[in-house]
Structures are given as C-alpha cells and as structure tokens.
Amino acid sequence: MADSSATEVDIAGRAAPDPGGKPPAPATRRAGPVARFFDGDLWYSFKRSPLTIVAAVVFLIIVIGAVFAGLLAPHNPLTPMTMDARTPPFGTSYMGNYFILGSDNQGRGVLSAILYGLQISLSVGLCSVLFAMVLGVGLGLLAGYMGGWVDALIMRIADIQLSFPAILIALLVDGVTRELLGQSQRQADLAFWVLTFSIGFSLWVQYARTVRGSTLVERNKEYVQAARVIGIHPLLIMLRHVLPNVTGPVLVIATIGLAIAIITEATLSFLGVGFPPTRPSLGTLIQQGQQVLGSEWWIATFSGLALVLLALSVNLLGDWLRDALNPKLR
C-alpha cells in the first residue's frame, strides 16, 4: 500500500533546525543587512517604545543642528557685535537684528551660540568616547585573553584609576598638559585635544572591565579553542574571533558614555579649564549665563536646556539599547 516512490525526498541531514525546548525562535529569512535590521528584534523593540522614538527624534534634531550649525545659525557667534548685546528672547537689538532666544553680553545670539556649542560638545563627546573605547576595549581584550600577570597589571591600574572621580582625572590631565605646552596662541584648538584626551582617559576603565569580563567568557568557548587547535595566532584570535563577540555591551556603554562625556566637557568648560570664553561651548555659555542669571536669564536657561535635552536623549537611547540587547529582558 505504501507508495515508496513518494518517499524519495532528498532531506539527508538538511531539514530545518530544531527549535529547542523553549518557545521556538521564528525562522530567520535570508535578506540583506538593511532588510534584516528592519526585520530584527532591535527595530521591533524600537517601534514599540514611544519614549525611545521621541529621544531619537530629539537627538537627531540636535545632531542636524550641530552639524549644519554654519548654515542654520542665524548669526555668527564667532564675530559678535557689541551693539547686539543683551537682547531678550524674541527681541530686536539696536542694530535691528532679531534674536529668537536673545543674545549675550558680547552680542552673540544665544541660539547660534548653542548650535555652535552643540557642535563642540558632540565632537568632544564622540572623540573622547572613541578614544576611551579603543583604549578600554584593547586593554580589556588583552587582559581577558592573556590572563596571568598581564591581566593583574591592567586591572589593578584600572582599579586605581576608578578610585578617582572622572572630573578629577580630567582636571589633572588638563592641568598637566597646559603646564607642559604653555599658554598657546591656538589655545582653542589645543583645548579640543586636551579635553578629548582627558575625558577619554577618565572613561576607559568601564570598557576595559566589561570587555575583559566578556572575553573571559568567550575565551573558554569552544570556537576560540577550535581556532587555537587550528594554530591561529593569539592576536588574530583576539581580533577576529573574540572582539566581534564582545562588542554588544560596548555599544551600550559607549552611548551612555557619550552623555557622560558631554556633561564632563560642559563641566570642565564651566570650571574654566575647557574652551576659552571666545569659543561658545555649552559649558562656557552656562558659566557666563549664570553670572548674569538675575538680568539675562535666557543665556544660562537655554544653554542648560540644550545640554539637558542632549544628555537625556542620549541616555534614553542608551537605556533602550541596553534593554533591547539584553536577552534576559526580552
């Protein structure tokens, strides 16, 4: 009765994967990376979180404003006119210039200054996070993979550094660099690198610790051992096998680190060790504004608001990313 020809199905070892005992994962369709992203869990959890969408929109507006500050700013804050000074929001100055968010005592439009300030905040933030990431990930990978005294040395240095607050380290690095290089004509350009380095240096420990932890886990996984059995050089194993598998949490730390870096930059500038007052950064703006908070309230208020919006949106994005990438919370 059995029609044997109907059974000649070529399935030798190629049937679909079993779903495991747990709620089965839906079959993954094969598609390009873009399509995969919009099909993926990340996009799905993004769509389902209105707060995250708002944060992303705010962040995007800030980024666009900062990147195109030169085009968007109604005035050039680098060449202020004293006659424009102290115009209140929605006011017109003696020169007949209209300022939506008012102007400061040098005659810089607050909106324009904020846009240029955001540019500085974002670039210092990004560069210092990048610096911290490269340093921290590299050292963490090395410590986790090599183990032994390399690990002990790197992690003790990290421990010592962690016991100093980030601002203190940044102040220290900043002070030392200034002392070494002296007051230069191109102080503003120098300030950028000093800030980037000092903030970055205060942030690397977190990356190193996280990466070391994940590396310790990955190192003992069998795919790394397989690479060792094949005879792959340890450095290549670290870079090609371990690194791609420990970057998930790094992305989350980097996002939250960006917010910290931006605030640290503002703090340092506020304390007078960052950018010179001639360069509008959010920190210097707030600092100037708070001296005249009684009369020209709008300077500190709007700069502060911009800083809060930036830091908050980045933080919210970081929180979402952390939850979305954490399989336990899914």
């Binding site: 399935i11 030798a12 070892g13 190629r14 049937a15 994967p17 079993d18 779903p19 089965p24 839906p26």
Partner: peptide, 8 residues
C-alpha cells in the same frame, strides 16, 4: 535522515 521540523 533529517531532523524534526521547526514548529514554524
């Protein structure tokens, strides 16, 4: 030969 089908 083969494996158990996915639930999908």
């Amino acid at each position: 030969d083969g494996a158990m089908p996915r639930l999908t």
